[in-house]
Amino acid sequence: MAQLKGWKEIPIGGMILEAGSAMEYRTGGWRAFRPVFGEAACIHCMQCWLFCPDSSILVNGENEKMAGFNLDYCKGCGICASVCPVNAKVIREAGEALKRDDPRLCIRMVEEGKFKE
């Protein structure tokens, strides 16, 4: 952890005087579930990009396609998986209850402890 500053060295009232300083706070450490991208199923609708509260959906700048997750900031909330229309289709067509880490899903949520590359 960075050296903590004393009360004389910091802005008063808890003010943060630099814009964009949230970049310095890597919230990925909060994550209990990791989103895993099933690229083959993805239709690149960008619903996950639209809904991600942490701007952690990576987009390929050249072809503007969904390219995975920025795990430095992803808190593992799973909103991407729940808004994913491909996931909805897979679940409906399966006709059975799927686990959230089912490999058929476009975005699946895997317990951090069980994740393997």
Binding site: L4, G6, W7, I10, G14, M15, I16, L17
Partner: peptide, 21 residues
């Protein structure tokens, strides 16, 4: 010209310093 944040979350690492101020 100088964007800033008022009233962010302030935990055990800095809240006490702000009270000292």
């Amino acid at each position: 010209e100088h964007p800033k944040t008022y009233g962010p979350l302030d935990f055990y690492d800095y809240y006490y310093e702000h009270k000292r101020q």
